[in-house]
Design a protein around this nucleic acid. Structure first.
Lengths: 158, 158
DNA sequence: CACAATTACATTGCATCCAATTATTTTTAT
DNA sequence: ATAAAAATAATTGGATGCAATGTAATTGTG
C-alpha cells in the first residue's frame, strides 16, 4: 500500500530517501490506529443488539467488574477524561444501566453504580468475546505476544 | 488494573467466572484502542507546530508519497471514508497544501494534488518520527513483531 | 480562621469517525 | 438507445475524544 520506491541511478534496488521515515508504511502508529478502528467497527453489529457503543461497552465492562466506581477511577481504567465520560455516563444512566450520585463524604466525587438492569445486560454481552474471536486469525501465541507488547507500549507512553 | 478476583470457597486461588471473558484485562481490543489514542496524543505537540492534526498528518504522508491521488484510493490507504475525508481535505485545501479538482475523464472522481507549499511542509515534518521514537521503549525486534502482528490483524479483519 | 492551591467533575468547542442517505456521473444490460 | 445498476463524493446526524476553561468542594498553610 502506498509503496513508492525509487531506483538508484546506478543500481537496481530501491533508493533510500531522506523521507523514508515519513512513509506511511514505515509507521508503527498507523497500523495501530487503523487496526483499532477496524476492530471497533467489527464489534458494531453485536453491540447494536445491546444498544451499546464500543466506548459504552468497555465502560460497562468496568462496571460489571467493579459494581461501583467514581469517575476519576473509571477514567484511569479507560484512559478517558470527564469530557468523554460525563456525557457517556449520562446516556448509560438514561438507559437505566447505571446510577450517578455524589459521594456524601466528598461532594466533588461522582459515584457511578451498576443497576440490576445493568447487571442483566452482562448475560447478554457474555457471548460477544467469542463472536469477535473468530474474526482474528492470530494464533494464541500471537495474541499473547501482541497483548504483551501493547501493554508494554501503553505503560511506556503514559 | 480493575482486577477483581474471587476466592473459591475451598481453595485459595482466583475462581474463574463465566464472565472472565468480559473482563477488560482479558480484551485484546482495549489495549489496542487505548494505545492508539495515547500515541496520537503524544504526536500532538509536534503536529501542533505544523498546524496538523494526526489524521491530517497521515493524509499528508500519503500525499508526500503519491503527489496526486483520488479520494477513493486515499480512503483505501487510510481506512477512512468520504465522510471523514471530504471535510478534512477541504481544510488541507484551505491551508494551501493540496488542491481538489474533478477528473476530466470521470467527473465523479475527485483528484487531490500536493501543492508546492504542501511539499515544503514535508521538510518540517521529517524530524517528527525520530522525536516520537524516543517515547517508545520497545526494542527494534519488538517493534518489528508488533508491526507484523498489527498488519496481520488488519489484513484479517478487512 | 482566612485564603490560596488543589481536586473532581462539568462544559464548550473543534475535529474526527462512521452509518446512512443523497446527488451526480458512468457503466451495464436489455 | 435507454432504463437500471453501479460507482464516487458529499451531506447529515450521532457519538466520541480531547484540550481548555469553568465551577464547586476540599485541603493545606501561615
Amino acid at each position: 500500500m502506498c509503496d513508492c520506491t525509487f531506483k538508484s541511478q546506478e543500481k537496481d534496488y530501491p533508493m533510500s530517501s531522506e523521507y523514508d521515515t515519513l512513509k506511511l508504511e514505515n509507521q508503527l502508529c498507523f497500523p495501530l490506529y487503523a487496526c483499532s478502528r477496524e476492530i471497533v467497527k467489527k464489534y458494531k453489529p453485536y453491540l447494536d443488539d445491546l444498544d451499546l457503543t464500543y466506548t459504552q461497552y468497555i465502560t460497562m465492562m468496568v462496571m460489571w467488574e467493579r459494581k461501583q466506581i467514581n469517575v476519576k477511577e473509571l477514567g484511569e481504567c479507560l484512559f478517558l477524561d470527564s469530557g468523554t465520560l460525563t456525557p457517556l455516563l449520562k446516556k448509560l444512566e438514561q438507559k437505566g444501566w447505571v446510577t450517578r450520585q455524589r459521594a456524601k463524604s466528598d461532594e466533588r466525587v461522582l459515584i457511578v453504580t451498576l443497576t440490576p438492569a445493568g447487571e442483566e445486560l452482562r448475560s447478554k454481552a457474555v457471548t460477544i468475546p467469542q463472536k469477535m474471536a473468530c474474526c482474528m486469525n492470530l494464533s494464541a501465541e500471537e495474541v499473547q505476544t501482541l497483548y504483551r507488547l501493547l501493554y508494554k507500549l501503553l505503560g511506556d507512553c503514559c
